[in-house]
Nucleic acid binder design. Structure first.
Length: 461
RNA sequence: GGCCCCAUCGUCUAGCGGCCUUGGACGCUUGGUUUUCAUCCAAGAAAUCGUGGGUUCGAAUCCCACUGGGGUCACCA
């Protein structure tokens, strides 16, 4: 059997991190089995359709370096869904329903008031054929509903959860075809997965309860059933399904915030799955090689940015090569960043970067004017006169040499406290109390700028 | 509420009947390296394996109940 997997995102807004999560596992499983990973656009909801959202999804997958094959938009295959639903009607598995949204609404409210499960009351199930035809001919608005068996156990062997059984009596007569002529998800997903010969449906846990509907449809159509794998859902801190209200769920937003696609991808691999050797850091190729559903956790993992941050820093300082980091950093360099200096500056800040975005704040004193205050120059250990004394001595030493050993010798010969002295000099040169190693910094800064900053600091005291 | 899924440190997880008075990672604390921060290294706190029953010579691991959490019940996907 050829393994074919897919994701079917809807272009309704943001490119969701959950989509990336599903894409990752679908892709890995397909590749592992020499299969194919496809993307189909689920655009049957015209009310929520957002122009351009589709491209953002593709861009996000590209950014994450997850290869895929584009297929089609569901809106391009409308006639297939009507053809499919017609065979269902002929076989008696679907029927026309003329109930208005208003009637359904009041019906639901009444049911809820009576504490019943809200569901369609099947008013239109027994409409005489002639009446149905007449109302269709007159152009009355209608939907087509699936006729659910009354009491039938539907079971399947889920790849991550084992056997799951649901009785059809729990299921509603699902709308398959909307009054605007577009199919609902349930019809479209079955028709399209069959058309694309999807062998494994790997999707979120949220679909478990509608899977019986899909299985029934496969059966009615006489199509080969795919294998189902329901993955755990990514959660917010409060354990609810990860949502944009409580979390940043937009893939492009992680890109903008300076996360590396490799790090985000690696982190996502660890959500619900664990490496057989308990490794945390591994490449996509390795994931493909060692992935297995048997190592899948069924509990929904909480998306924790703290660990993502650590992983991102780890990738910046250890996993990526220097030129790869430089390339990744490029879009995050401030406009006035002296790019020719990047190879010299990067080693000074590399292990201090959590996100690529940190490059600006961490390096701006190299190319921006600094404004140290007297308080900062004094630090916690010195007085104003001491600071001045330090700086004057530092200045005359620097005029002779940029060697750190020279400075150290000078400080020690005077019997000064190294910490206090260097704090003052650091603030004078970088404008901040925290910086990369001072003499490395000074060498990048150059003699002229360093000396002028020290002189400027002296006049402050 | 009905149905379905789930339940090991704060978080991500290992564990699939004895090797576990639970191992790793993040985070946290402390110490070391260091003129600051970060890195790196070392140590530590942190789960009576949700609770209660079984099964078994033996259970985090199997079974049941309860509790708790989540998902789903749309002409949204």
């Amino acid at each position: 059997m050829t393994v074919r997997t897919r994701i079917a995102p809807s272009p309704t807004g943001i490119a969701h991190i959950g989509t990336a999560y599903m894409a990752l596992f679908n892709y890995a499983f397909a590749r592992q089995n020499d299969g194919e990973f496809l993307v189909r656009i689920e655009d049957t909801d015209r009310a929520r359709f957002v122009e351009g959202a589709e491209q953002v999804i593709y861009d996000s997958l590209d950014w994450l370096e997850i290869p895929y094959t584009k297929t089609f938009r569901q809106s391009e295959h409308l006639e297939d869904y009507s053809a499919a639903v017609q065979t269902l009607i002929q076989k008696g598995h679907a029927y026309y329903c003329f109930c208005t949204p208003e009637r359904l609404e009041t019906m639901r409210k009444e049911q809820q008031a009576r504490k019943e499960i809200p569901r369609y009351d099947r008013l239109c199930t027994h409409l005489p054929k002639e009446e149905v035809q007449k109302r269709l001919d007159s152009g009355e608005r209608h939907v087509i509903r699936m006729k659910m068996p009354d009491n039938e156990m539907i079971s399947w062997d889920d790849l991550v959860r084992g056997t799951i059984s649901i009785n059809t009596k729990e299921l509603d007569d699902q709308v398959l075809m909307k009054s605007d002529g577009f199919p609902t998800y349930h019809l479209a997903v079955v028709v399209d997965d069959n058309r694309m010969q999807i062998s494994h449906v790997i999707r979120g846990e949220e679909w478990i309860s509608s899977t019986p509907k899909h299985i029934l449809l496969y059966r009615y159509f006489g199509w080969q059933l795919p294998v189902f794998a329901h993955m755990p859902l990514l959660r917010n801190v409060d354990k609810t399904k990860m949502s944009k209200r409580k979390n940043d769920v937009s893939i492009p937003s992680y890109k903008e915030k300076g996360y590396l696609p490799q790090a985000l991808r690696n982190y996502l691999c660890l959500m619900g799955w664990s490496h057989p050797d308990e490794k945390d850091i591994f490449a996509l190729q390795e994931f493909i090689k060692v992935f297995s559903f048997s190592r899948m956790q069924t509990t929904g993992p909480i998306f924790d940015v703290k660990k993502l941050d650590w992983m991102n820093g780890k990738y910046i300082r250890e996993v990526l090569k220097t030129d790869e980091v430089e390339t990744a950093l490029f879009p995050f360099l401030p406009d006035d960043f002296p790019q020719d200096l990047l190879p010299k500056i990067l080693p000074l800040v590399r292990e201090r970067l959590v996100t690529l975005h940190d490059i600006g704040p961490l390096t701006e004193f190299f190319y921006h004017d600094i404004h140290p205050t007297v308080e900062e120059l004094m630090g916690k250990k010195s007085s104003m006169s001491e600071a001045k004394k330090y700086l004057e001595a530092a200045l005359s030493t620097l005029e002779k040499s940029f060697e750190e050993t020279e400075m150290l010798a000078m400080v020690d010969s005077k019997g000064w406290n190294r910490g206090a002295f260097f704090t003052t000099l650091r603030v004078a040169v970088t404008g901040r109390t925290v910086s990369p190693p001072l003499f490395d910094t000074i060498r990048v800064l150059g003699k002229q700028l360093t000396l002028s900053r020290v002189k400027a600091a002296i006049t402050l005291c």
